[in-house]
Simulated scan of single mutants.
Amino acid sequence: MTVKKIWAVDHQCGHQAEHDLSGRPADRRAGFARWLADRECTDCWRADRTDDAEAKAAWRDKQRAAEQAEADEWTRRYGMPPLEGSERAVPWAVRCRHQLLAAAYTALVVEGDTDEADWAEVEEAARTITRAGWWIDQREAEPGDLPELLVAATDDDRPTENPFL
Results as ranks from 00 to 15, higher is better:
residue 57 A to D: 00
residue 29 R to G: 13
residue 128 T to W: 14
residue 81 P to R: 03
residue 22 S to M: 11
residue 15 H to D: 07
residue 123 E to H: 15
residue 76 R to L: 11
residue 48 D to R: 09
residue 49 R to C: 00
residue 110 V to W: 09
residue 150 L to C: 07
residue 29 R to F: 05
residue 22 S to Y: 06
residue 130 T to D: 11
residue 122 V to W: 02
residue 1 M to V: 11
residue 118 D to Q: 06
residue 14 G to Y: 03
residue 97 R to D: 00
residue 61 D to G: 05
residue 89 A to L: 10
residue 92 W to F: 11
residue 98 H to F: 12
residue 129 I to A: 08
residue 159 P to Y: 15
residue 91 P to E: 13
residue 85 G to Y: 05
residue 38 D to Q: 09
residue 108 L to H: 11
residue 154 T to V: 06
residue 155 D to N: 09
residue 66 A to D: 11
residue 101 L to K: 01
residue 102 A to S: 07
residue 24 R to T: 08
residue 12 Q to G: 14
residue 15 H to T: 04
residue 103 A to L: 14
residue 130 T to P: 01
residue 131 R to S: 04
residue 41 C to V: 00
residue 107 A to M: 15
residue 26 A to L: 06
residue 18 E to S: 14
residue 47 A to T: 07
residue 50 T to Y: 00
residue 5 K to Y: 15
residue 71 A to K: 02
residue 86 S to Y: 14
residue 147 P to E: 05
residue 164 F to I: 15
residue 108 L to Q: 07
residue 69 A to N: 13
residue 150 L to G: 01
residue 106 T to V: 04
residue 146 L to K: 10
residue 20 D to T: 02
residue 52 D to S: 03
residue 16 Q to V: 14
residue 151 V to M: 10
residue 159 P to V: 12
residue 96 C to L: 06
residue 33 A to R: 12
residue 118 D to E: 14
residue 14 G to I: 09
residue 65 A to D: 08
residue 95 R to I: 10
residue 104 A to N: 08
residue 37 A to M: 09
residue 40 E to D: 13
residue 58 A to R: 00
residue 51 D to E: 00
residue 76 R to T: 15
residue 29 R to P: 09
residue 153 A to L: 08
residue 41 C to M: 00
residue 22 S to R: 13
residue 19 H to K: 06
residue 84 E to R: 03
residue 115 D to I: 10
residue 125 A to D: 05
residue 83 L to V: 05
residue 106 T to E: 05
residue 100 L to M: 13
residue 135 W to A: 03
residue 144 G to F: 12
residue 67 E to R: 01
residue 80 M to W: 14
residue 136 I to M: 03
residue 137 D to T: 15
residue 16 Q to M: 15
residue 93 A to C: 02
residue 109 V to H: 05
residue 160 T to A: 08
residue 57 A to W: 03
residue 130 T to Q: 10
residue 152 A to T: 14
residue 79 G to M: 01
residue 114 T to F: 14
residue 46 R to L: 00
